[in-house]
Design a protein around this nucleic acid. Sequence first.
DNA 1: TTGCATAGGGATAATTTTATCCCCTATTGT
DNA 2: ACAATAGGGGATAAAATTATCCCTATGCAA
Lengths: 118, 118
Amino acid sequence: MYERKIPLNLNCGLDLIGEVLYGKWKIRLLWFINEGHKRPSELQRKISDASRRVLNMQLKELEQHELITKVIYAVVPPKVEYSLTDFGKTLIPIIAALGQWGDDNETRLRSLILKENV
Amino acid sequence: MYERKIPLNLNCGLDLIGEVLYGKWKIRLLWFINEGHKRPSELQRKISDASRRVLNMQLKELEQHELITKVIYAVVPPKVEYSLTDFGKTLIPIIAALGQWGDDNETRLRSLILKENV
DNA sequence: TTGCATAGGGATAATTTTATCCCCTATTGT
DNA sequence: ACAATAGGGGATAAAATTATCCCTATGCAA
């Protein structure tokens, strides 16, 4: 793994949750897994902007942080399924709230975000 | 500003909120401003791990995204105060939920996060 | 006259995160 | 023999984000 040069700061709850949720695709992965898209290839189709490689890396981190579990079936071709752990499920309401806020303010946000990229 | 080379994707609410909340210190800035720490020097003291420069940059983005407003008083030495906009205030419950989750799971998270950095 | 507090920002370096490229596994079907 | 399928990962390049360094300005106090 990558060896940090700048120490983590884990002072408060916000730092802690940040450590497990930061990552360009992590929240979406949790969301789609919660929706029942369990297999890597499904997730890749859902999040087609991300490369396979990066999804694998972020999935592995989510697993290390005990938010998801991975089951590998000994079949050919291989079959893998991810599921949320109970711990991971406790994040779903929060992720839902984040998405809801974004949806509720979609028009405004879209224009604000695009404005600066002129 | 920095010119993106990889296009943004703003497909869903999660993308949109991500665009305004990603940034190492943004959530904390919103939180402390909400708690009444309005002046840049106060914020810097609160978030002493961040350099002044970076806080300024992130504050500016928060302002551009209409989450905070900035008032510059014409006095010497200079005085500046940030406040949440009504729009920004709607994020506070969500930020509170994030921090709460982190606090609730502090012990577990701390050990999980540190485990991988061996 | 030097130093301090307060706020700001350009230029550049360092760090971290993502993306890209190419290779590997094993079996089933053509 | 050989592609197709489904999943995985090392090495490296690129992009994005943060950090560092140093400069600006003003009025007051020591």
